[in-house]
Design a protein around this nucleic acid. Structure first.
Length: 615
DNA sequence: ATAGGGTTAG
């Protein structure tokens, strides 16, 4: 008896724990039936719960067993099914078992376990109405003071974006502990108040690695990757345990910042300390390498992975596309299909980008059409925008316009902007004017659009139009988003914001910029050959009195780095002039320059750019 | 017999 208690479970059930295939499950089931064990409600529950929770692939079989053997199922069994489905790809199915509880012939009533699992389902489904009614049921059944249920409610309301409801529940927690505080901290970060989340974090009496990870995740999710990195360093200094989740988060921050050195350090750390290599961690590594412009390393790691999911594939396909390797990205998509991984809407964003950057129009059209016809995925505005970009980039402007007009939803700024970019490239005034008009209707102060159209006018030396466009911009108060460029030197991230000369080595940088301009001048380069175009830039400078930050960062790279490519990450699309300058520098100074702008990578080498001057 | 907090692609 003592022995049995220590083992805690029927031997057959313990055996089930190590079963992966359905065949083994069925063998054990046969034994249990023969022995008559499946007649006992307790054993039935154990059996169903173990199948369902152990191996989510067997969930449908667990449902079958439940209907076949448990009559009527116990609360434990039904709770186990709700729990298992709440974590499955089809969480709504757990609602079926909740209704079994409510309408059970043996008058079952949901308990605190039921609600804990059910709240996770609602969170996963983002089911607002169901969530609210479950909250009502929690109160009706008197579980609103159960700490697990309370945390579940905070978690659910965070997913639904109801910060005040989170706060309301949390304020009712009689003794907030580490777990409920972390859930609340996460809620603040998720709902946009990351600074308050930080305040909660600082005021916590104890913090474990999950709380630290939640805080770092908060910074990453709101785009404050620099703060995320600082937080990560602090976490290390405090000697908090770093696990694979911490690594994923810090890699995500590196990817956003383009901090390759730092990312490499994380990779080395993962290998050195044998951090558990999950699919998520592998995907984060691929993303980091690709977004830092080291696409070879990204793919090398990709092919070495044992398991890849739809995130992994989408990440790799998008990474190739972003680096201008369109054919490779399309081929990878075919490989994905070969391996029978089901693509989703994001995967198609990646493939369409790949087709677009190398002008594979027919190929792209084919994949776009297959979204609905083969995969049942409804294309979203972004997919349409990419198709417009694809036609436009190939110089097929009329078809691009036709595509916009065929959109089943109102064409968005992205679609018209793609057309406008193509108009600038192919110097089409009429369509450009139409695009600008449409963009301005939707977004009064779209700075980029005005500058693009004025570039087109300037190409035609139509200074009157340029000047009137400038007047309009001024009258409407259209202002350019402040530029910002980042360069990493020796693991330290240096950020240059337009107009900010506070960098300790700004003097040296200015000297370098003068040297660059001299060298370029000698090589026959004339800055801004287009005087009126320059005027628009001048006007921006009235506020900022400064050079574009990408030039500043490149100059700093020239000073600080020897023998390695200069890698710069910026928040806007690179401007024409800086693009020209970077090409010249790559030739005259014989340096490789890699710029990641808002849209894609530019690999400058020997006077040329990988984007072939279209971006 | 069951339970609560942190993670990846756009």
């Amino acid at each position: 008896m003592k022995c049995l208690k220590r083992i805690g479970k029927h031997p057959s059930i313990s055996l089930l724990n190590s079963c992966s295939g359905l065949r083994e499950v069925k063998q054990i089931q046969a034994q249990l039936v023969v022995k008559g064990s499946l007649k006992h409600p307790h054993m039935q529950g154990q059996f169903v719960a173990t199948i369902a929770i152990n191996n989510p692939c067997n969930l449908n079989y667990a449902t079958h067993v439940l209907h076949r053997y448990t009559n009527p199922p116990t609360l434990f069994t039904l709770n186990s099914m709700i729990r298992a489905f709440s974590k499955s790809p089809t969480p709504f199915k757990s609602l079926i078992f909740y209704s079994h509880i409510l309408h059970s012939p043996n008058n079952l009533s949901p308990d605190n376990y039921t609600f804990t699992f059910l709240l996770r389902t609602c969170a996963q489904l983002h089911a607002r109405l169901t969530g609210l009614s479950v909250h009502g049921a929690v109160i009706k059944h008197g579980f609103e003071h159960d700490p697990h249920v309370q945390t579940g409610l905070v978690f659910m309301y965070a997913e639904l974006g109801c910060l005040s409801s989170c706060r309301g529940v949390f304020d009712g927690v009689s003794e907030p502990d580490l777990v409920s505080r972390t859930a609340m901290l996460h809620a603040y970060a998720k709902c946009g108040d990351v600074d308050f989340a930080r305040k909660m974090f600082d005021e916590m009496p104890h913090r474990d690695h999950v709380a630290w990870n939640a805080m770092i995740a908060g910074y990453v999710q709101c785009g404050r990757s620099g703060d995320a990195l600082d937080m990560f360093h602090l976490m290390q200094m405090e000697g908090v345990k770093l696990n694979e989740v911490s690594m994923v988060l810090v890699l995500s921050a590196c990817a956003h910042l383009g901090a390759l050195d730092h990312g490499r350090w994380v990779h080395a750390y993962v290998e050195r300390y044998k951090v558990r290599m999950t699919v998520t961690l592998g995907t984060a590594l691929i993303d980091m390498y690709a977004k830092c412009g080291n696409v070879d390393r990204a793919m090398e790691f990709f092919w070495g992975m044992k398991e890849r999911n739809v995130y992994t594939w989408s990440c790799a396909i998008g990474g190739l596309a972003m680096n201008g390797l369109g054919e490779e990205s399309v081929n990878l998509f075919y490989a994905m299909k070969q391996e029978e991984v089901e693509p989703n809407g994001v995967t198609f964003i990646s493939v369409l980008k790949g087709c677009s950057v190398v002008g594979l129009v027919e190929e792209g059209q084919k994949h776009f059409d297959s979204m609905r016809s083969v995969y049942g995925i409804e294309p979203k505005p972004d997919h349409y925008g990419l198709m417009v970009d694809m036609y436009g980039r190939a110089g097929r402007l009329e078809e691009a316009l036709d595509f916009i007009n065929s959109m089943p939803m109102k064409p968005h700024v992205g679609a018209w902007s793609a057309l406008l970019h193509a108009c600038r490239m192919y110097k089409n005034k009429e369509l450009g004017e139409l695009a600008l008009r449409k963009i301005v209707e939707l977004e009064d102060k779209n700075d980029g659009a005005y500058v693009l159209l004025s570039n087109i006018y300037a190409d035609y030396k139509n200074w009157e139009r340029v000047s009137s466009l400038r007047q309009t911009m001024k009258a409407k108060g259209v202002k350019k988003l402040p530029g910002c460029s980042v360069i990493e030197i020796g693991g330290q991230v240096h950020e240059f914001i337009v107009g900010d000369k506070s960098h300790p080595r700004y003097g040296e940088i200015e000297l370098k910029l003068q040297e660059i301009s001299m060298c370029l001048g000698q090589a026959g380069y004339v800055a801004n050959t287009n005087p009126v175009l320059f005027d628009i830039e001048e006007e921006e400078k009235e506020d900022t009195l400064s050079t574009h930050t990408e030039k500043v960062a490149i100059a700093f790279g020239l000073i600080s780095l020897k023998g390695v490519p200069i890698r710069v990450v910026m928040n806007l699309r690179i401007c024409w002039d800086c693009h020209n300058v970077a090409k010249m520098i790559s030739k005259i100074f014989n340096r490789e320059i890699i710029v990641r702008d808002r849209n894609r990578f530019h690999h400058f080498k020997k006077g040329d750019c990988s984007c072939k001057d279209y971006w």
